[in-house]
């Protein structure tokens, strides 16, 4: 009897000791590399007792197929603003209880006004980080720095040009053609953009598909000019000792915004909201800024955790910069026309 009591007490103690971790459980996030970086996620795991398992996507096109094939596996996802609407329309995500998210009101109003993260007056996405699809060149390849998208069509750079293998190629070509309303292009304008891309094709060394691939292309001396995810590839290249400069062309640049979305009927809601709160706090906002070089969606958190230099470099204090960006917009039923045009270019 005595022995039994002892055993029970010991077991109880064990269970109690383990209880906080067990009760909180774990969350699976489907996200971009860097968004669940150990440099700040391990702090979160210690504080919250929620274990974070991250799966990484290479492109926004990965979210829908992954969610369609493996529904119920993930608790949180971070599609960009051109894909968030699709997630809502596919019924993969649930409305957010914004009252449970501290710092919600510190998010840039411009982001909260975006249509892509809302439906029927409810928010489905929590803006997290943003940036520009800037252009980039290798310093040692230019005496006069390039300033325009047309520089990606220059004959003398033949075989040294790269472009992102994405429907955004249509956005780039349309702006070169002078069609600035890039998310509402008519069929004729899309056809013109397609023609411009076909014309550019002989000059292209390689269309880049992943961030790592673009870095490799610059490092190996294969390309000298391309578009890029501002802040990310350039800092990877700087770390490799390759000198590149980012620029916003005279035709403007697209802007992107990534938002955290909660997968419908997740059983780990408690951890999911703890995670959302952390990501919008200084820990998460500066975490991603330091790892990926992206700008933060919560300006006041950014102000308190960034150095003034970083704050300025990431354009956090510069509303006109944000306003100048053509923020990605869901294309809805025009999506197919855009992707089809881009596929036709690649088929040539």
């Amino acid at each position: 009897m005595r022995k039994t009591i002892l055993t029970t007490t010991a077991l109880g103690a064990l269970l109690l000791g383990a209880a906080p971790v067990l009760a909180e459980g774990s969350i699976n996030v489907l996200t971009w590399e860097g968004y669940a970086d150990p440099s700040f996620i391990s702090t979160f795991e210690e504080q919250s007792g929620c274990k974070v398992n991250a799966t990484y996507v290479g492109s926004n096109d990965d979210f829908a197929p992954k969610m369609m094939a493996g529904g119920g596996v993930y608790d949180l996802i971070t599609p960009s603003i051109d894909t968030t609407k699709l997630m809502i329309d596919l019924d993969f995500v649930e409305p957010l209880d914004t009252a449970m998210i501290e710092g919600w009101n510190d998010i840039y109003p411009k982001f909260l006004a975006l249509d892509g993260i809302q439906k029927d007056g409810e928010y489905y996405g929590m803006p997290y980080s943003w940036g520009a699809i800037a252009f980039m060149y290798r310093d040692d390849a230019f005496t006069t720095p390039p300033t325009s998208i047309s520089d990606l069509w220059r004959e003398d750079l033949k075989g040294k040009i790269s472009l992102w293998d994405d429907k955004s190629a249509i956005y780039v070509a349309a702006r070169k053609n002078g069609d600035m309303d890039i998310y509402n292009l008519s069929d004729e304008q899309i056809a013109a953009a397609q023609a411009a891309l076909v014309e550019q094709k002989p000059l292209i060394r390689k269309y880049w598909a992943t961030a790592g691939e673009l870095v490799d292309l610059y490092k190996a001396g294969e390309v000298v000019i391309s578009n890029t995810w501002a802040g990310y590839q350039s800092s990877l290249l700087a770390a490799e000792g390759v000198k590149v400069t980012e620029f916003i062309p005279t035709e403007g640049a697209e802007g992107w915004l990534d938002s955290w979305m909660v997968v419908k009927d997740t059983p780990n809601k408690e951890c999911a909201y703890k995670f959302l709160n952390m990501q919008l706090s200084e820990l998460g906002q500066c975490g991603v800024a330091n790892v990926n070089g992206y700008s933060a969606a919560n300006a006041s958190a950014a102000k308190s955790c960034m150095t003034p230099e970083q704050f300025a470099a990431l354009h956090q204090d510069d509303p006109t910069y944000l306003d100048s960006l053509l923020i990605w917009t869901p294309l809805g039923d025009r999506f197919e026309t855009y992707t089809n045009a881009w596929n036709a270019v690649k088929a040539q």
Binding site: S59, D61, D62, A64, P65, L86, D166, K167, K201, I204, R205, K206, Y207, A209, E336, T339, N340, N343, K346, A347, Q348
Partner: peptide, 25 residues
């Protein structure tokens, strides 16, 4: 095609992959 192919390197399997991924068709 993905690793060593150039801009004119798209093969039929790449197109199929695109339809199941990016194009969601």
């Amino acid at each position: 095609p993905f690793l060593v192919g150039g801009p004119d390197g798209n093969l039929i399997a790449n197109v199929i992959a695109t339809q199941f991924g990016a194009a969601l068709n």
